[in-house]
Design a protein around this nucleic acid. Structure first.
Lengths: 333, 333
DNA sequence: CTGTTAGCGCTTTCAT
DNA sequence: ATGAAAGCGCTAACAG
């Protein structure tokens, strides 16, 4: 293993000088620089990143804490983050939370471990306690798809999203509109399902429609919520004509049940989801699109900015967009 | 920031002792251990991982080089790897190759960077040159969905996979069977498309069917390959009755074109894919399932084993499984 | 069993 | 502009 010392010796200079050319610092003559560079090349020397990090007191790595790593929503956000972070020369360490204990464990690792120069938290809520801990340790954090008043955050407006979806259904002529939520994440403390529900209820009222509590179902397991929800709704009397599913994944469960029962959208019922994951275009699902990759990118950019300007906290809200496909496209004759 | 020195001082012992209790090494009296532990707790001390890595000469992190991070196939493999790696207490650094240059860059980073204790390469081929470099640097590598005779590898048998798919179609009564490959990855040097093609051709011959070169199409862009391939095949005369798509993603492209033209499986044509990504179950696509997550897990386990026993190289082949769904389920009346 | 000390490979003053 | 030297926080060999 060739070290900076070897290079210095061979180039006939001090290690300090080698370090300076490595870091492009001023105060090194063109002459010497070239010489050192030549030796570095000759010896194929690469500085040991760990050895660099110790005296610099930085890790050059960013930690990302996120749940359910394989879900398309999170993968897309992660891709956005990864692109920006690696572009900026930082390493990315992914912490995949698949149980509440992991969450606690990773937050602890992040705050106390001196492992990261900054942290991005996706979807998971950040408690006041941790906000304080992050602050105390001068560790920049940004939230993506989550919110805290004192922390930089990239969000969409889920109430507006719920309203968008509901209004679309109403515009299509529906009045008997159901909502299937998903409390899967209650354990982790997400609360988007409540926000979208709120937008849904508000919009119904704004249109003079009284929300029917029998048409609101809160499941607790992604696609499973859709399955349970669809079965539940189909057992109601009267039955709703349109379903607003908390997420595209939940909508998938609804589709499954519908197929089993020989029902198909848009003719037998209307269906709208949320997120616009890739699969949605293949099954013709109308949905409210979240700019997932962009959310990741912006989050990463905010963090990188915070590294340089620690007090430049800001909250950014990205727009949601209705994507209309055949699942809501039945025109009553 | 509290260091090991602070702990030592406060506990009235030497730093060596503190280090020993930190690393659970023997030779420290229960008495002292308890005392030190108390102080660690009191001061809420956590050893600085970077400072630990330097003298230990290990990074405690594993690098994963993989392409197209967001594709379900890779996400699933990655999840398997992540689960095992983090279980074993290592950090995971993901290097997402989305262009040939990135590939070169990341391999260089892995070999020369002293950043990793070991590396997992997914799908990308490992050149002899790099095999040598990894060896020279005593850096363990394992390949997942890729192969090299001198390196531990987790693979499936793609020739057999091609045969499985083709035989299934033949068993369903088809003789006019087309293959749509995908050379997208040629740039990156994948070659699975050739292997599956080989299995396809071999199986046709074994069944006394002469492969028709007009029914073989090599696209070059995932779903796009399916789109081009389907359009091409539909312009042939005669037209095949069944299509074996290189991957489920390619099959998706075929479905898209078919829908545009008002064709639907299984009645108008039969379709089989490869991989069994999540979407396939929703669109009723028959496919050859790869045990993606298991491939990742086994790869990680092999690597962890190599860390302890550097010469214990082994090649593992995991089984493929035909998953029959409606896309091939037309029974000729 | 335990304290002391010499590094790990690099960065960064501090003189010169 | 540059060399020497003092750490960064920890581990591990050494001496007791």
């Amino acid at each position: 293993m060739v070290t900076i010392r070897d290079v210095a010796k061979r180039a006939g200079v001090g290690v300090g000088t080698v370090s300076r050319v490595l870091n492009n610092s001023a105060n090194v003559s063109a002459q010497t620089r070239l010489q050192v560079l030549a030796v570095i090349d000759e010896l194929n020397f690469r500085p040991n990143p760990i050895a660099q990090r110790l005296p610099r007191q930085e890790t050059l790595t960013i930690g990302v804490i996120l749940p359910f790593f394989t879900f398309p929503f999170f993968v897309n956000i992660l891709e956005g983050i990864h692109a920006e972070i690696s572009e900026a020369g930082y390493d990315l360490l992914v912490m995949n939370v698949d149980s509440p204990e992991k969450s606690e464990q990773y937050f602890g690792k992040a705050v106390f471990g001196r492992r990261f120069d900054g942290v991005i938290v996706v979807t998971l809520p950040l408690s006041d306690q941790y906000v304080e801990l992050f602050a105390k340790n001068d560790l920049p954090v940004v939230l993506v798809d989550s919110f805290h008043p004192q922390i930089s955050a990239i969000t969409v407006n889920n109430v507006v999203g719920g309203a968008l979806a509901t209004q679309h259904l109403i515009d299509k002529g529906h009045t008997k509109i159901a909502y299937i939520g998903d409390n899967q994440n209650d354990l982790f403390g997400f609360h988007t399902t409540q926000l979208r529900l709120h937008g849904y209820q508000q919009t119904l009222r704004d249109n003079g429609i009284a929300p029917n509590p029998n048409w609101i179902f809160q499941g607790n397991q992604g696609k499973g919520s859709g399955v349970q929800g669809a079965n539940y709704l189909l057992s109601q009397d009267p039955t709703p004509t349109a379903i607003f599913a908390y997420s595209d994944t939940v909508a998938l469960g609804v589709v499954e049940v519908a197929e089993e029962r020989g029902l198909r959208y848009p003719n037998d019922f209307a269906l709208i989801g949320f997120d616009d994951i890739e699969i949605s275009q293949y099954i013709g699902l109308t949905t409210v699109r979240q700019p997932m990759q962009e959310m990741g990118k912006q989050g990463a950019r905010q963090l990188i900015n915070l590294l340089a300007h620690p007090s430049d906290v800001k909250a950014i809200e990205l727009p949601l967009q209705l994507v209309e496909r055949k699942s809501t496209n039945f025109i009553r004759g």
